[in-house]
């Protein structure tokens, strides 16, 4: 008769055991935490250091920890729509209103503002320092065809910059207009490297260390104000979220202690954000 190789397969069971052990280990590494909320916010609030300043004060007052997922405004909205964050803190009032109108959010409260500034190389080749308005400054940049670095990432800052171009009646295009698709910090790193103009938020700028030739060339126009709002997520859409804790955070932000915490955040004696709760 023909011979067949015989074998016993005790190792299948062994491999299965090891596998489940490894998975168990992986899951077990998720720490057992004190109560916390996940705040979807913008890179500007995280990178400027604001959260590092105010979150511990909130935790001290309530025992609730704050986990910040800092992304572009567009992505922050997407995360909140998917139900992956308990609350939003962003700076796009139009987008926030839409988010509430579409039924994803239930309430928007103004929290604070800071402002955008237009940065550029110190020698100011487009001569925007003498412009009368932000719109005029952008028109001079477009006319001079000097490099301009745009976030290009659908963030709040990018949306604000696009509103300015629209107000200036310019459709920015051409080799001088460079869409980077990056956060504020990387965009400033790039702008500094290629002596480009850039619209930035003041908070991130004040916390930015790789300035090279970059300086503030234009500021103060009211259209450059950057308004931050806190948006509560609709509990009917995402019942699993920690709405009670989120409301605690939301109310603390606009309360006297919360507003004072925001106002007290300074870099080199300069405040970065100005509380403006109703």
């Amino acid at each position: 008769m023909r011979q067949r190789f015989w074998f016993r397969p005790p190792y299948a069971a062994l491999a299965g055991g090891l596998l489940s052990l490894a998975l168990l280990l992986a899951v077990a590494t998720a720490p057992a935490d004190p109560p916390f909320i996940v705040v979807a916010s913008t890179t500007s609030t995280e990178q400027s250091g604001l959260f590092g300043h105010i979150a511990p004060r909130f935790t001290e007052a309530t025992g609730v920890r704050v986990r910040v997922v800092a992304v572009g405004t567009g992505q922050a909205f997407a995360i909140a729509r998917a139900g992956d964050a308990d609350i939003l803190l962003v700076h796009d009032p139009d987008g926030e209103a839409e988010f509430v109108a579409a039924g994803f959010g239930v309430e928007r409260s103004p929290v604070m503002f800071n402002d955008f500034v237009i940065l550029g190389p110190a020698n100011d080749p487009a001569g925007i320092a003498g412009a009368q308005s932000a719109v005029e400054a952008l028109q001079r940049i477009a006319a001079a065809q000097v490099p301009f670095a745009s976030r290009g990432d659908d963030s709040g800052t990018h949306r604000a910059e696009q509103r300015l171009w629209a107000a200036a009646d310019i459709d920015p295009a051409g080799r001088w207009y460079r869409e980077l698709g990056s956060g504020m910090g990387p965009t400033m790193n790039t702008a500094a490297g290629m002596d480009a103009y850039v619209v930035a938020d003041r908070a991130t700028w004040l916390n930015f260390h790789n300035r090279q030739n970059l300086v503030i060339l234009f500021q103060g126009d009211e259209v450059l104000f950057n308004r931050y709002g806190s948006v509560l997520i609709n509990p009917e859409r995402h019942p699993h979220l920690k709405h009670d804790l989120a409301i605690q955070w939301h109310e603390w932000l606009v309360s006297a202690p919360g507003q004072a915490a925001i106002a007290s955040y300074e870099i080199n004696g300069e405040p970065l954000f100005f509380p403006n709760a109703d």
Binding site: M1, R2, Q3, R4, F5, W6
Partner: peptide, 16 residues
């Protein structure tokens, strides 16, 4: 054919 004296259904493991 390659045949061992031992044959039958259960012979294979023994043959090996």
């Amino acid at each position: 054919d390659i045949r061992w004296a031992l044959d039958g259904r259960d012979a294979a493991p023994t043959i090996r």
